[in-house]
Design a protein around this nucleic acid. Structure first.
Lengths: 316, 316
DNA sequence: TTGAAAGCGCTAACAT
DNA sequence: ATGTTAGCGCTTTCAA
């Protein structure tokens, strides 16, 4: 019994001869260890919970792929739950994951709302936020420097002479926007002595909303937009072109995620480049260390970003 | 002990008064049942394994969302594993899932290769294929009638006068192509007395491959393409336009999945419409019945499809 | 309607 | 290096 356990778990205190014998029987009987029993006895499930707003969102899907690949590499499985960024669903999902005794959690969300924070703090199981900011920087997380990225990209829009640049995000009041992107956007404007008007802040979180937003943009005499979501950016670009306002000639669009979509639209979309897969991968790698009780010096990691000027802006 | 178990599991043989008492203590002690112990004792984990080629593929991501929503509805959790459609990874993933004692499996793959089939048959745990064909129709599965869908869409390409219509898929030799789509394509050609030449069969499974394929297409004097993957279709369309061959004027493109991408490209892509979310949802619903030992009359389900003519074809 | 007891299939401490 | 034993935290008979 115990010896079989040792062999199966690659414990070293087994005589090679008996190991062979056990292996032979394991094969012959087609024995497969029961992970549930293992989990109960060892208090480790080699399973991590992943909360994602929506798998069909290509930004998060890219992170999820990075997460799963590294999880697999470290022999963990992933329990994936879509939350739609909804507080209720997030809390419910967390409770389910706790019941399932997951060894750790990767949380992705637009926002870290108080109820979720409480839930996360209540258990002492490791959590890492992936592509999701924690304004208090309390939890380990991996992101890029959204503020600097937006700042730089807006600089490009400024450089080509735009006087009224809009900032567009799914929900302006989310921490990632309120505390990082918008300050980056405003800092860029201020540095050029441009007024910072809230009337230039708009909401659009997907293609259709972006497309529909064009009327508002035109009404406000906006000539360029810094968008925080690739699909919304595509919607704005197509919407403008369909209204006879050509991009980038009469209107410039810059976006944030560098998903494959930015290469598939016409014109192609200028964007901030983020290592999406790596954000997920690094988050998972960090979580493995935490689950392994290793000491981690840097629990807040910022991955490098870049800017890619393509067809939707005039900048070269 | 046993009474608490009854209360937690909503067993009816409990006096309301004691139920209240138990509930009160549960709350006070912040008691949360351990699903692992539950799983060991009851031999049910309320977890299903989901094998997906790649979450970042929007076709499969859409199915995954449908799967997760229904799973959640029936109180199941999902263990998600990316396989890249690789036989080795699929087999490995299945074994891991079996060890984890999942109650059922949803399999998505480009192909149901022999090794996987063997693995699936070896265990008697329920499996449902989602958006993935089983040429032998041995396993429960939910799909659309790919053959008819392609046949109809090719008819439209024929109607606008094309004499050399290409068929493009990720891998021509996959069952879904070999046994369903290509026969549909060929039947449409044959019905119009058009020769069925293998030189009109091409491979491209993503945007870049589609884009690169254009040279071959031009070389072969192709004037229209029936593509089995939206991203590849976008690549072909952009590739043609970039080469000065305008779509749909000089080249028509029709695709298969109706992912959101088909509305985001310019021109927009004409496509077969499939209820992607529903394919996943119905598959999961079917699996719940199977896991519940309910008798299911129809284990092979074909969901309705449609055709949507947009900007990449001349047909109205 | 409730309690007592066995046991799910392992791991881990302990003994040998 | 191997065997023995005691749980892990529940569900599920079986009695009462």
């Amino acid at each position: 019994m115990a010896t079989v356990s040792r062999v199966v778990n690659h414990n070293h205190n087994v005589k090679p001869a008996t190991e062979q014998k056990v292996m032979e029987v394991v094969k012959r009987l087609n024995y497969r260890p029961n992970d549930v029993a293992r989990g109960l006895a060892s208090k480790k499930t080699t399973t991590v919970g992943v909360i994602i707003p929506n798998v069909t969102n290509s930004y998060f899907a890219a992170l999820a792929r990075g997460i799963d690949d590294i999880a697999e590499m470290y022999q963990y499985n992933i329990i994936l739950t879509n939350s739609d960024g909804d507080e209720q669903k997030e809390v419910k999902a967390l409770n389910t994951l706790y019941s399932k005794q997951v060894d750790g959690i990767i949380f992705m969300g637009h926002e870290l709302c108080p109820a979720v924070r409480v839930e996360l703090e209540a258990e002492r199981i490791p959590v890492v936020l992936a592509g999701s900011v924690d304004p208090d920087n309390e939890f380990p997380n991996v992101n890029i420097d959204y503020q600097a990225a937006v700042h730089n990209q807006v600089n490009n829009l400024l450089a080509s002479g735009n006087q009224r640049i809009a900032f567009v995000a799914g929900e302006l009041n989310r921490s990632i926007n309120r505390d990082f992107r918008i300050p980056g956007y405003q800092a860029a404007l201020s540095a050029q002595q441009q007024p910072v008007a809230t009337e230039l802040l708009f909401e659009a979180g997907n293609y259709d909303e972006g497309y529909a937003l064009c009327d508002d943009l035109v009404k406000n005499r906006v000539t360029a937009a810094m968008v925080s979501n690739d699909e919304a950016a595509a919607g704005i670009m197509n919407g403008m072109n369909d209204r006879g306002i050509t991009v980038p000639g009469q209107f410039e669009v810059a976006t944030s995620d560098n998903t494959k979509l930015t290469e598939m639209t016409r014109p192609t979309l200028s964007t901030i480049t983020q290592p999406l897969y790596d954000v997920g991968a690094v988050a998972m790698r960090l979580l493995t260390k935490l689950m392994d009780n290793q000491v981690v010096e840097q629990k807040q990691v910022l991955l490098p970003f870049g800017l890619k000027q393509r067809g939707s802006t005039k900048a070269s």
